[in-house]
Structure formats: structure tokens, C-alpha cells
Amino acid sequence: MIQFENVTKVYKGENEVVALSDVDLTIKDGEIFGIIGLSGAGKSTLVRCINLLETPDKGRVSVNGVDMLSLTSRRLREERKKIGMIFQHFNLLSSRTVEDNIAFPLELSKVPKKVRKEKVAELLELVGLTDKARAYPSQLSGGQKQRVGIARALANDQEILLCDEATSALDPQTTRSILDLLKKINKERGITIVIITHEMNVIKEICDKVAVIEDGRIIESGVVEEVLLNPTTDTAKTFLKGVIKTEVPPEVAARLKLSNGGELIQITFLGGETGEPIINEMVSKFDVLVNILYGNIDQVQDITFGMLVLKLTGPEQKLAKAFLEDKGLKVKVISDV
């Protein structure tokens, strides 16, 4: 269990930056906990306060009951060995092969060579890189590098894995495979995973719980579905927009411009009403023609989010729009795209 009590961190200097302000946070064992925020929100500082790569100015940080701030540097190093960490830019040693990179934390712990070898082989298998054991990091793809990072972060049988923007440098497909691997590790080893990200997709894919951070404060937190469905703050809403892609891609917008006549509207729906045949109802009730020009539907756990761009033509356009709004959909006129 990771606990933050009133943790505050201020970067002093010419312009003082409050990176964390009175943060309270509890991460339970075995959870995949996501922390999302825009860049500069303080999420990186937050995760670094767990293993004290950054030292809080005020407050209490405890990991598995150990008060981290009370430790001598020697004891702190011992505690750090129980916390694995992976990074956006992987931070592998370029002078070491894949297997030697994975063996690195074991060397630091003075594990005998024979044990090291067995452990490395086991970890290589876990992350699916057995055939790359002798390769150097520069010969690997981003996804493979992160797999090495993960193997290295698990070498000491860590109970906690901190992920600092671990998928931000990866393409969507690779991101997915890394997230799947993290999920698998969480299931098989029961390891607690803390994920720092600015991508709502990451939260959506694997997190159990999420905290939204802004200006050093946790402004919203809870079970992922709840926060996604009922965002109460603007920041959370902004992130949600990212997931349900309510923006029309520019190339589509360009095409929409070419179609003349009628009115372009964008409707956004969230959760419940997706079960009803609303568009169908609208067409049968009003004298209006509907052309579906663009759409996007997404799923978070069991809940559907979506967006449609429609072209309405006909005398009863206005009534039709009002009907959609009555049904609880968000309607936006985008004739001007």
C-alpha cells in the first residue's frame, strides 16, 4: 500500500513552482492506479515522491507501512530495490546488452552470477525477448526497449511498479502490447502498478482507479468508470473528450466543407441512451433527411461513448435538433467547419 498524506513539494528558484500541494492519496496492493494530468500538472513529481527521487517538503509518504522520509540513505536504497520503475525514454544502459541490462539491478544487490543468469532467462521469457538477449538497446524497437525496462524493473521481485509515461513514446499498437504486458504482470504477480500518463486511453485500457491531477492538486479520483462517466471538473472532461474523440479530424472536416445545403450537426452521446434507436425515431417523427457523415464509437469497460456528424436537410431541421437535445444528447451545429 502506498499512502500520501498532505504531501507538498515546491521547486524554489526565481519563479517558485508548487509541484504538489497537499496531496492525499492511497493506492492499495494489487491495484493498477492511473494518475492523469496535463504536462506540468505535477504527476511526474508525484510518482517520484514514492521512491523519493524527489523529496517532499511537507507531508508523509509511506510504502507498505514504511515511512519513507524517515529512512537513512542506506535503508532508502534497500526500500528502492523493492520498487521497480519504468520510464518514457526507457533509460536503458546503452553499453550493456539486453540480458546485462536486466541483470543490472541484481548486480547492485550482489546476487551471485548463477542466480542472476536464471533470473534473467526467466524475465526474458516473461517479456518475450529471449531471442534478443545479446542485442544492444540501440538495436531494439521502442516497444522492445520498454519490455527490457519492464523486465529490469521486475528483477528484484518488486512489489510495486512505477510507470512514468511509459507508453508516451510508443505508437498506439505498441502501447497496447505494453499495456497488455503490464496487465498480465499485475494479474500473475499481484504487483501494484502506478501509471502516470497524459493519455486517457491508457487509463481506459488497464487502470482500476484513476486520479486526475491539476496544478499539483488531485482534483478528482475514484474507480475509472465512475470518473469517466461523471467527470465533475473541466480537466477531467477535457481528458474524456480525448477518449471519445469528439473532434472531427481535419481531413474529414475538409470533406464536409464540400457538401452543401442542409445543416451539419455533431451529436455526442455517453452511456445509457446508446441503447435507443434515436436517429431512427427522429427520422420517422420529423420531416427531415439524415445523412451520417462521420462517426466514432468507443467503449470503456461496459460503457459506450460516441460521436456522430449528421447532415440534416428538410423543413423540420429545428424540431429534429430539439428532439435530439430532449433525448439527452449534446448537439452542436458545425456548419462552419
Binding site: 536504497r77 528502492r80 533509460n91 536503458l92 543490472f104 539491478p105 547492485l108 544487490s109
Partner: peptide, 29 residues
């Protein structure tokens, strides 16, 4: 030598000496 690599070693509980001998010197060799 990339600061990130040094930070990673610190996160793994490396001592100052270990960082010099196992990270800084080999990476800059």
C-alpha cells in the same frame, strides 16, 4: 551520460560508487 539513466540507477537503489563504476564510466567509455 543521459540523466535518465542515472535516475534509473538511483531508483534501483544504486550507491554513488555503483553509479560511477557501473553507469557513468561504462556509458561514457
Amino acid at each position: 551520460v543521459d540523466k535518465g539513466i542515472i535516475e534509473a540507477a538511483q531508483a534501483m537503489g544504486a550507491t554513488t560508487m555503483q553509479i560511477i563504476i557501473k553507469v557513468l564510466l561504462p556509458e561514457a567509455f
